[in-house]
Design a protein around this nucleic acid. Structure first.
Length: 424
RNA sequence: GGAGAGAUGGCAGAGCGGUUGAAUGCACUGGUCUUGAAAACCAGCAAGGGUGCAAGCCCUUCGAGGGUUCGAAUCCCUCUCUCUCCGCCA
């Protein structure tokens, strides 16, 4: 969501910025609506003022036992005039809001132009993206051979894009979770949080999934939505509040399931557990002062990278191009882990800086000590990391020629003595 | 799921349909006093929006949305949430 005052003052900057997003120039129609609304609003407020004073006069007259019939007639007149104006102001306001609510965030200056993921730019890489000394298998081949990853029975229960994990793989997934949460809480200062997994409309509006992307989400019969990521409840925790600046930054981490309909992804990544309707994720969310947003973005990305480094999984950090950056983000880094089985880097984390875009939508402000004015907070979110995909990365990178999987050193304390996962 | 009570400013808590955007207390900020602090006393202290060069003026908001009325925090309806009791339950 945008500051209408800023658009008034910088209509061309606004159009140019959105052009990067492939949005047609819209400032003219926005400002036209805005102007019309304000004109009507001013007129309406004059009438309201008139009505208020006259009503008070009526009260005064009546309390003195005098007749107020003339004044009452006048107020009735005013009221008539108000009715249509009220409707007009209301409807113009709704139009303006819905126009602004469907526009994506303005990108940071350093986001490269581009159409698709092809145009993303590698920022740095870590580790060696090498092939193994033997013929590396993909995660689903390994998992099914181990008898610990079952897609058929998952389909029997729930349809396509689900998986059942068992035994050592389920344990490994749990170990990864523990390791991630421990690292983020104790080393990076994120507050472990268990949020609800079902949320209301306005919460999804706040982070930007609604109104545009409802087809990507699941909705319950009670009209609550299943969260597509913990970013949604975590970022909204302090919505509609004025935060004491001394309490910033706020950093939250949560381990939650994520539910995505994957509408429009038909045929993509149908094999294995790369793209599921339900997956677990450890999420990171930061709420910071406006001047701290960019530094926090780097810090958050480092926190996510730390997990892969400790797991000794090669990865690269990509700066997403304009065409690949999400709706609410100003700038996004994807972390892609090396998958020897696939012979490719695949996204395992996405860290986004949203500026005040989400904060405006959810009315989350902060105030500096001794200042009267409120400022919209800046929000960031990142995966730290997606569990399913991290499990895949561990499996493919730690696979042995016999199909067994070694447990990464850093996970051993969490594996109850198990240091290798073999066929059951 | 059934029965009842409630929702007011950062918190607590008043509020016969008419100068109530809202008493009072606490908290907070500034000042007086004090060597300093505390106490005491004085003053200030809601958000969002419109308008104006500005000072300011104005509008809206007392859980949300409708309605009654010249006028609603106060009356009516719907919804949401909270609390108490009963039932069920991880």
């Amino acid at each position: 969501m945008f500051d209408i005052k800023w658009i008034r003052d910088h209509p061309e900057d606004f159009d140019n910025a959105l052009k990067e997003r492939g949005v047609e120039p819209i400032s003219t129609s926005v400002l036209e609506l805005d102007e019309k609304k304000r004109k009507n609003q001013t007129e309406l407020q004059t009438l309201q003022n008139d009505r208020n004073t006259k009503s008070k006069d009526i009260g005064r007259l009546k309390s003195q036992g005098e007749s107020a019939d003339d004044l009452m007639r006048e107020v009735a007149d005013i009221k008539n005039k108000m009715t249509s104006l009220e409707g007009e102001v209301e409807s113009l306001g709704v139009q303006l809001k819905s126009m602004l609510a469907s526009l994506p965030n303005i990108l940071s200056d350093d986001v490269p132009s581009g159409k698709s993921e092809e145009d993303n730019v590698e920022i740095r890489s870590w580790g060696e993206a090498s092939s193994l000394s033997f013929d590396a298998k993909e995660h689903y081949e390994l998992g099914e051979a181990l008898g610990l990853m079952d897609f058929e029975r998952a389909a029997k229960l729930s349809g396509s894009r689900f998986v059942v994990l068992q035994g050592g793989l389920a344990r490994l997934d749990r170990a990864l979770t523990q390791f991630m949460l421990d690292t983020h809480t104790s080393e990076f200062g994120y507050l472990e949080t268990q949020p609800p997994f079902l949320v209301r409309d306005h919460v999804l509006f706040g982070t930007g999934q609604l109104p545009k992307f409802s087809e990507d989400l699941y909705k319950t019969a009670e009209d609550q939505w299943l969260i597509p990521t913990a970013e949604v409840p975590l970022t909204n925790l302090h919505s509609d509040e004025i935060i004491d600046a001394d309490n910033l930054p706020l950093r939250f981490t949560a381990y939650t399931p994520c539910f995505r309909s994957e509408a429009g992804a038909a045929g993509r990544d149908t094999k294995g557990m790369l793209r599921q309707h339900q997956f677990m994720k450890v999420e990171l969310v930061s709420i910071v002062k406006q001047e701290d947003g960019e530094a926090e973005h780097e810090r958050m990305t480092k926190a996510a990278e730390t997990i892969l480094q400790r797991l000794e999984i090669p990865y690269r950090v990509m700066l997403l191009c304009s065409g690949d950056t999400g709706f609410s983000a100003k700038k996004t880094y994807d972390i892609e882990a090396w998958l020897p089985g696939q012979g490719e880097y695949r996204e395992i984390s996405s860290c986004s800086y949203c500026g005040d875009f989400q904060a405006r939508r959810m009315k989350m402000r902060y105030r500096e000590k001794d200042q009267k004015q409120t400022i919209y907070a800046h929000t960031l979110n990142g995966s730290g990391l997606a569990l399913g995909r991290t499990l895949i990365a561990v499996m493919e990178n730690y696979q042995q020629e016999d199909g067994s999987i070694l447990v990464p050193e850093v996970l051993k304390p969490y594996m109850g003595g198990l240091d290798k996962i073999c066929a059951s």
